[in-house]
């Protein structure tokens, strides 16, 4: 969210600012300061710095979020293998409470991986990602995957400076997860239903139902089914990814950037202030429509 240009002042709160200017004195003589800043403005500031850094190097940064064990690392392994001869180079930032295990799995495929051990922190924040970036040569990277801590709650609240959010939902978890964790799934630019090779033995998971719950969050994000293990559905995901890389290259050449579709408390303010912010895209259910984000969400 932008705290500098005044776009965070809405019809609902402007009286606070206008009443007595920025500073007012209360009846009992105390100084009242109207702030109207996101509680995470420090994180958001660092996130914007990270995003500038990615854009300068022409890197597309993707934040992967899901429950623990839904197959984020397996998806990355399959993606790395599939893109081996594509000319696209990948780097990975891994977030876990403990261990280097995931980073080691990624490195075994010949891709640089930086592990962030968060200790007890349940999410990555923009500062942690910034520290990890110092260990990577971004000039030789086209796609940076940030594998967030496995958690369907906290990671959704923190902007890391990435361009897209991808939320994974594995078929062993239950198709009503979007209804149970609306903040997380509403943040997704793409929902990937993983482990779909298991669908034939799971009679209680319906991909259509999962997608319906996603639509009930007013999200037009595409939803793809895939299996990193069998390779089923990977093509559609790889097509989305290469489209995203292409669109991002075009954007950075024009000095434009993009933010994940939903950034907490940013969207509404920008809408009110008259910035065009197309939150519900016109095209319908995403199965057959790769999502290209043709318009930049330019939060300056």
């Amino acid at each position: 969210m932008c705290d500098t240009c005044g776009c965070n002042i809405t019809p609902g709160n402007e009286h606070l600012v206008r009443a007595d200017g920025k500073l007012a004195v209360t009846e009992d003589g105390k100084q009242a300061v109207n702030v109207l800043k996101s509680l995470l403005s420090e994180n958001d500031h660092q996130a914007q710095h990270n995003r500038d850094h990615f854009d300068r190097h022409g890197v597309l940064a993707i934040n992967l979020m899901s429950s623990p064990g839904s197959g984020k690392t397996a998806l990355l392994e399959a993606t790395i293998e599939a893109l081996k001869d594509s000319g696209l180079s990948i780097a990975v930032v891994e977030g876990d409470l403990e261990t280097e295990n995931d980073a080691e799995r990624i490195r075994a495929h010949g891709v640089p991986a930086i592990q962030i051990a968060t200790g007890s922190a349940c999410h990555l924040d923009a500062h942690m990602v910034h520290d990890a970036l110092h260990q990577l040569d971004l000039d030789s990277v086209d796609i940076l995957f940030i594998e967030n801590v496995g958690n369907l709650v906290c990671p959704a609240s923190f902007d890391l400076g990435h361009h897209h959010n991808i939320t994974l939902l594995s078929t062993t978890e239950g198709d009503d997860k979007p209804a149970k964790y609306p903040v997380m799934f509403r943040a997704a630019d793409l929902m990937l239903i993983t482990k779909c090779d298991l669908l034939h033995v799971l009679d209680d998971f319906s991909p259509d139902k999962a997608e319906r719950y996603l639509r009930e969050l007013a999200s037009s994000a595409p939803a793809f089914c895939l299996s990193a293990k069998s390779g089923e559905g990977l093509e559609q995901w790889l097509e989305w990814l290469s489209d995203a890389v292409k669109s991002h290259k075009e954007r950075t050449e024009k000095d434009e950037t993009i933010q994940p579709r939903i950034q907490i408390d940013g969207v509404k303010f920008h809408q009110v202030s008259g910035h065009h912010h197309d939150n519900a895209h016109a095209h319908s259910h995403g199965h057959a429509h790769p999502h290209t984000h043709s318009h930049p969400h330019d939060h300056s």
Binding site: N8, G12, N13, L16, T26, K30, Q31, A32, V33, N34, V35, L36, K37, S38, L39, L40, S157, R215, E216, A218, S220, I262, I264, D265, V267, K268, Q271, N279, A280
Partner: peptide, 20 residues
């Protein structure tokens, strides 16, 4: 389902009162 969110995602520091 094609709606726009107009409120409910705020996480804002509105106001601080100080003694000086």
């Amino acid at each position: 389902w094609q709606t726009q969110l107009r409120g409910g995602d705020e996480m804002i520091l509105q106001r601080v009162e100080l003694e000086s």
